[in-house]
Design a binder for these strands. Structure first.
Length: 354
DNA sequence: TCTGGGGTCCTAGGACCC
DNA sequence: TCTGGGGTCCTAGGACCC
């Protein structure tokens, strides 16, 4: 029995939220991301609107390049408070229409609407209904993909952007002409590796021997093979607890000044500690991530035999792990706690924390 | 072109235990 | 006098996603 799965994806979400609260932005090229600092900024573009895309700007592009492409764009720092508030409203709308619901970040979600609709035609009517409600209440547009599983619906929602609905009844004929890069989990590396095997489209992937794919990619090869036939998970469910809390910082200029590095570790560790308090969890592992001037990235970690929660432990452990890189030019420092435990009840935690 | 920040999952080797 | 095999945990790196 086939399910009917929606993937709802907000169009240029961050930029669109900014345009709603600031009418002056209408028609302008809007880029959300780090500070371009007259072209010297070190970050990347998080999102931009279609006006900015017309200049060739896109997400993940170095902000310095975006600045060069159009200096007259409006460059904004992300306002996550605003996006979270709007996101909560949208998710409430989506939940209402679905049997099961799975939020994927601030701006997208999967909906299992099996049982809520009679057939494909009915599903399309529901998709319009959802789009209308979001448009009425939040003045935002989204794109919706409809198919029998999450894999295909996600690709479908991207197929007719912005403000589109794409209904896929035949997974194979929809997927075969598309590039393998469209498959969830296929990034630049796998794309290149597949190209070397003579595979560029999903149709070519489907025609390639499953055994050879497993030989080349391990269990990921099996996933690739199934995906190419349009087979994917239709299990929609809210995700469980997070498995790590992390925070990182890129220096404006690479630094070998460990007084500075230690100071940043203190700040980051404190924020991670605060989050762990808010979320009432303890942790067993502390890790650091260090990126040097040449972009080479290293991680070091320490796991304790029992769950920890002391305030100073994160910073102390992180500083100890970072010592190895003394004298090196550091570009980025990050700290993470993982192996989290949420099981302690509040009473126990009160003695434990803060 | 010069590459953020917050995450997840997978792999592979080594230690250690029985 | 030359060393099995299964299981689990830890560590480090890497690919990928939003």
């Amino acid at each position: 029995m086939n399910k009917i799965i929606f993937h709802v994806d907000m169009d240029c979400f961050f930029a669109a939220c900014e345009e709603v609260v600031n009418k002056d932005l209408k028609g302008k090229s809007v880029v959300i991301g780090s500070d371009p600092k007259e072209g010297k900024g070190r970050g990347v573009v998080a999102t931009c609107n279609y006006a900015a895309r017309a200049y060739g700007i896109h997400s993940a592009m170095p902000i310095s390049k975006a600045y060069r492409l159009n200096k007259n764009s409006v460059f904004l720092r992300p306002n996550f408070k605003l996006y979270s508030r709007v996101s909560t409203n949208i998710m409430l709308i989506l939940k209402k229409y679905s049997l099961n619901f799975q939020k994927m970040g601030l701006d997208e979600a999967y909906l299992d609407v099996t049982g809520k609709v009679e057939d494909w035609a009915d599903a399309k009517i529901l998709a319009y209904k959802i789009k209308n409600e979001i448009s009425d209440k939040e003045k935002l547009t989204c794109s919706i993909g409809i198919s029998s599983n999450k894999l295909v619906s996600k690709i479908a929602s991207d197929f007719n952007k912005p403000d589109g609905i794409t209904l896929v009844k035949n997974n194979r004929s929809f997927l075969y002409p598309l590039k393998v890069r469209k498959l969830y989990g296929v990034g630049p590396r796998s794309e290149q590796k597949l190209k070397k095997l003579g595979i560029e489209s999903i149709g070519e992937l489907a025609n390639f021997s499953k055994e050879k794919l497993i030989e080349n990619f391990g269990t990921f090869g099996l996933y690739l093979s199934l995906s190419s036939f349009g087979e994917g998970s239709d299990f929609v469910s809210s995700m469980g607890e997070r498995s790590s809390i992390s925070k990182e910082h890129t220096f404006m200029e690479d630094s070998d000044d460990f007084v500075k590095v230690d100071k940043i570790i203190d700040d980051i560790a404190f924020e991670i500690f605060s989050t762990s308090c808010q979320e009432k969890c303890t942790f067993k592992t502390v890790s650091i991530k260090i990126r040097l001037h040449d972009f080479k990235t290293y991680t070091r970690s320490k796991t304790f035999s029992v769950y920890q929660s002391e305030k100073s432990l994160i910073a102390d452990t992180a500083k100890l792990l970072a010592k190895e890189f003394l004298g090196k030019k550091i570009r980025l420092i990050g700290v993470k706690v993982s192996s989290l435990d949420f099981s302690k009840d509040q009473k126990v935690l009160k003695e434990y924390l803060c």
